[in-house]
Design a protein around this nucleic acid. Structure first.
Length: 649
DNA sequence: ACAAATGCCT
């Protein structure tokens, strides 16, 4: 028997060079056959099961003949206990006992290191094993995908095909995952499409797992129609497939289709009961369209099925109520939670955030810290947003510092963007620009976008141009940036520049995202767009708007603000275009169709424009109704000619 | 004998 003394190195299982010769000898020895029954070392086994990994390792050092099964248990235990130093001890011992070329254990080791977030060591195991079974290949694909090393997966996948190693059904799911997490977005979608072709060529087009992963892959690239095509082509769909497709619609700005699909699922499959994951996506769709009645029905279902003990469901409920304008209902859900996690706390913080209650959001953040819940990066995004809304520059700066110093959270681009927004909104644009210049990381599109947004508020043409120089480079296909710049030029009456930006937009084949508003009437949800010919009431809606507008100008002093339209058009023409904004259509639709006295609840996919804001204020007084509009950021509650945002949004 | 798909808070 070969005896190799235990290695001293603490972080690497690789032996020093003078021992390699022994190792090679060890390698050439066939792995010990497990003639010995597994219960030969019952104590290691039982210690592993109890999670006492340190004690198990101690016994291992005295064990004369550890078997493959012993190591399997030890490796699993290390992964469960999350102790990497113990993992190294086990790995070293395994090498010393001649198991380092055992593919079964290599698979286990790769998975273990992956679970311990140590992709480097997982890769080392893979590189050093010479006999790579399909399990070993799949394990490294899984590990690389989870750790975000998509490019490495593609490289290895190509190697695997070159040496003629056949893929199996597991390979495809991992490689598709790699596309989603990969570093460079565009090339990954190309890869995804290629893998899709491989999958069809190998006859997996009916495989539920693989097809569902494909649906999700396209969803993550916002290729909603591709997801939908794959989904429709599936001869067999299970709950996960349906949930993936519903989530795809919810996450990609098509909430109505998410809700429709959910209802189709329930109708077509009597025995397919939605689970908590399905419910979360459906709640997100309700939130997106402010479908309060639908949301309440779902809430009832959740209670009946006992899904109200599941934190993600509760967090989604809180958000749904808040985004529908029902702060109190959202709070109630939060206080029904037994023991919340950081996500449910974040939900409550953002609950106050969308209602523009910055001080309350800050207070909840402090309460969360006092309750001993560690704030997450997202907690800071929310709370910095609150500071920005309140104009609390110093408070925001100190929170940012404590995030880095106290909580050791490395600022992500979102956090930098929050700071730029904070400074920019407070009309400290120069300081914001200096903050960007002093950043430790390369400023990305979110940061420049925040600066551009602030420039719009304060009409700073020069700085806006500087931000756009970067933005047009970093995300040339984001139409929103062009529109914002054109808005700023229009505000400054620089019509030639407005035209120039418009032409640039067209030359690049881009269109601004069309405005869309949603409204729920009698538990049915309607969407309205300015170019909508489908709504049978469109003529009635237009007539009402013209009449309202005229009467409010005469009787209550409403002044239409046509400046929000980019083009250098005649005033009358601008008026006509502005009256066609989707939220005004929705207001009129609500006035026509909602019961008297009922609150009109509208949601919109973009930011509320100034004229619509002013118009809705006047309408609320003129017709004596409460109107709640949620735009991308926040709630506007219009009552008696006033808005809850106090004209600051 | 080993391995897979959907979701909460920005």
């Amino acid at each position: 028997m070969f005896h190799i003394q235990a290695l001293q190195s603490t972080n690497l299982p690789t032996p020093p060079s003078h021992q390699r010769r022994h190792l090679i000898l060890a390698v050439s020895r066939p792995p010990p056959t497990s003639l010995s029954a597994p219960n030969k070392n019952p104590s290691i086994q039982s210690l592993c099961k109890k999670g006492q990994i340190k004690e198990a390792i101690h016994l291992l050092t005295h064990e004369q003949n550890p078997t493959q099964h012993t190591y399997e248990l030890l490796i699993q235990s290390c992964a469960d206990q999350n102790t990497i130093s113990d993992a190294f001890s086990v790995h070293r011992s395994l090498i010393n006992n001649g198991f380092n070329q055992d593919p079964f254990l290599a698979t286990k080791l790769i998975n273990m290191y992956s679970d311990l977030n140590s992709i480097h060591h997982a890769r080392k195991v893979f590189d050093e094993i010479t006999h790579r079974t399909i399990y070993v290949w799949n394990a490294i694909f899984r590990a690389l995908s989870i750790s975000g090393h998509g490019q490495d997966v593609f490289t290895l996948y190509r190697q695997m095909n070159e040496i003629g190693m056949p893929n199996d059904r597991f390979t495809y799911t991992y490689v598709l995952k790699a596309c989603v997490v990969s570093e460079s977005e565009l090339s990954s979608l190309c890869y995804g499409k290629q893998i899709h072709a491989h999958i069809l060529r190998h006859g997996y087009e009916t495989h539920v797992h693989i097809m569902t992963t494909l649906v999700d892959m396209y969803a993550k690239f916002s290729c909603v129609d591709s997801s939908s095509l794959v989904f429709s082509s599936m001869p067999v769909k299970n709950l996960v497939s349906w949930s993936a497709m519903i989530a795809c619609f919810s996450k990609n700005g098509r909430p109505l289709e998410a809700l429709r699909l959910f209802h189709d699922m329930m109708l077509e499959n009597e025995n397919m009961l939605p689970n908590s994951v399905t419910m979360v996506s459906v709640l997100q769709a309700c939130a997106a369209v402010s479908a309060l009645e639908q949301g309440k029905l779902i809430h009832g279902y959740i209670l009946r099925k006992g899904l109200d003990s599941i934190l993600p469901v509760m967090s989604a409920l809180i958000t749904m109520y808040a985004r529908c304008g029902e702060l109190e209902l959202g709070k109630n859900v939060f206080y029904q939670i037994d023991k919340g996690d950081v996500v449910s706390w974040n939900s409550l913080i953002s609950c106050y955030g969308v209602h523009g209650l910055g001080s309350e959001a800050l207070a909840v953040f402090q309460e969360m810290v006092r309750a001993g819940v560690l704030p997450s990066p997202i907690s800071f995004v929310s709370v910095l947003g609150a500071c920005s809304h309140l104009g609390l520059v110093e408070e925001g700066k100190s929170l940012f510092n404590s995030m880095v110093k106290e909580y050791k959270i490395r600022p992500a681009e979102e956090h930098y963007a929050c700071m730029v927004d904070l400074l920019g909104r407070a009309n400290r644009l120069d300081e914001a620009a200096r903050f960007i210049a002093d950043m430790r990381d390369e400023p990305g599109p979110k940061v420049w976008g925040a600066l551009l947004g602030a420039c719009r508020i304060h009409c700073n043409v020069e700085l806006a141009e500087r931000a756009c120089k970067w933005l047009f480079e970093l995300e040339p296909r984001n139409a929103g940036n062009y529109v914002l710049l054109a808005d700023i030029y229009a505000e400054a009456k620089m019509w030639d520049e407005v035209k120039r930006v418009k032409m640039l937009l067209e030359a690049r084949g881009l269109q601004k995202v069309p405005g869309c508003s949603w409204i729920e009437v009698n538990r049915k949800i309607y969407s309205l767009r300015s170019v909508d010919e489908l709504n049978p009431q469109m003529e009635q809606i237009h007539a009402l708007l013209v009449e309202l507008s005229r009467e409010m100008v005469e009787k209550s002093g409403y002044v239409p603000e046509a400046k929000v339209v980019l083009y250098d058009l005649e005033y009358e023409e601008k008026q006509r275009l502005v009256l066609g904004h989707s939220e005004k259509l929705a207001v009129a639709f609500g006035l026509i169709n909602c019961r008297r006295g009922e609150t009109i609840r509208i949601s919109k996919n973009l930011r509320l424009c100034e004229d619509c804001h002013s118009f809705t204020k006047f309408v609320s007084k003129f017709v004596g109704r409460e109107i709640i509009v949620r735009d991308v950021n926040r709630i506007h509650r219009f009552r008696d000619g006033e808005c809850s945002c106090r004209d600051y949004w």
